[in-house]
Design a protein around this nucleic acid. Structure first.
Lengths: 136, 136, 136, 136
DNA sequence: GTGGTCTAGACCACT
DNA sequence: GTGGTCTAGACCACC
């Protein structure tokens, strides 16, 4: 199975971190299985139109964390799972993002309903994008 | 009532931003009312054991945003709450937090409803039923 | 086209503010278009013979206001023009200049019509008949 | 003839400067004649509810400029006129305020008409205030 | 190379 | 005493 990378330049979170988190989460959720091959640094860099150093940095961090294994000349493959997120762990992982959103929303004067509506909109936007995935 | 500032050095969010967000949130929630005095730059710097410039930077940003008013010789006081940004701008400023939350939620396998529910819960936890604006 | 920054040390308006106002005005008039690159902090600091921090401060304020967008590694570019402030807020921000003008005009014995005429003349001098917004 | 001092705390222009400019302009316009007495430092400070040091600073600057003469124990009186503003000189004096206003107005996206309207409003506010002057 | 943050210390203006 | 500005120099993260 190939993986659908999505990055957004112009975001406050650096590109290399976006890649790291996507791979890490996909592995923890089982959407990437042990042994699955990742695109080469150069190929992915070209596809996402970013500097190869950025991809290399992301792969290096993933390798350091044990999420992937890289062998020179043979590319990178997903390593055997270390831990899987389930139940309370998933919620614990999501909590900071929820707290940040609500904190900023209150500061900006949004109501609860408005924020929930915006979340719903963004959800549709992301899910809709996933269903018509035609790239690699 | 004096305001209870809490900062954590070694966080990924810079110190001056932690201060800005605390004051902004407290003002939006009414925990800081118009006219309330903030500690002086030097006093707060000493209390938090940081450089006065760092505090000054935070106060300057709050002043530019219209959250507080500062005047040399006098200190800094909380300004009257008012709508500074257009609806579109407020939405734009909230967008990154929404996107981050939804991206992580999707990666972790949450449904839209589940996330909206978590947002609702956090909202109630932060504010006690009080609202301020209804416009979007 | 590169932008022609002009500052005067020894002015009552601080250097960083001179820079902010020049960019803000140029962006509002279209002399700086969305996507135009600004000189790097260090380059501009060297050119104007000021401390890089002073330039960084100016860029930070422009960034917070949404006039430019900055990203480490890339430089600073002009953002798309948009309405950031509510009508009331824009009026509030213009108020001090209006009050100063009228106070001085009254002291100097100008009539209201005369001042309005001078304003009209100066307006035409600054912009060449181009307008951008009609809402108040 | 007594003089109608008007200051606005919460303005960006310092209080002592507001006083200096009012007296200077009134003298140059002939509304204050040579020999006219100014209120004592303490009396004016009490009336405007500001620190006596602020008034003293303003009087000191006026004295340094030769606009007034202060004799210990005898209060301050307006000095003989040095220069009178007429015609082009008056316009030259007003120009900076006009330029500042228009520059900021354009930056904030105001149209010429809108600014002229705001000037008109402020003019009525100031003139109206002058006509019902009942204070000293 | 880029911008962002923080420290240290100086000087100024205002009250 | 207050906040505001500027300099000098350090360190970090990102590309």
């Amino acid at each position: 199975m190939t993986f659908d990378f999505r990055i957004s330049t112009g975001s406050n979170t650096p590109i290399f971190r976006q890649i790291v988190e996507q791979v890490r989460l996909a592995a923890a959720m089982g959407r990437l299985a042990a042994g699955d091959a990742l695109p080469s640094v150069r190929a992915l860099a070209e596809r996402l139109v970013v500097n190869p150093n950025t991809i290399a940095k992301a792969y290096a961090e993933l390798s350091r964390e044990g999420v992937i294994e890289t062998r020179p000349g043979k590319g990178a493959v997903v390593a055997v799972l270390r831990d899987v997120y389930t139940g309370a762990e998933r919620q614990r992982r999501l909590a900071p993002a929820v707290e940040t959103l609500v904190r900023e929303a209150v500061s900006l004067g949004f109501s609860c309903q408005q924020v929930q509506q915006l979340v719903g909109k963004q959800f549709k936007k992301v899910i809709g994008g996933q269903e018509r995935r035609e790239d690699l």
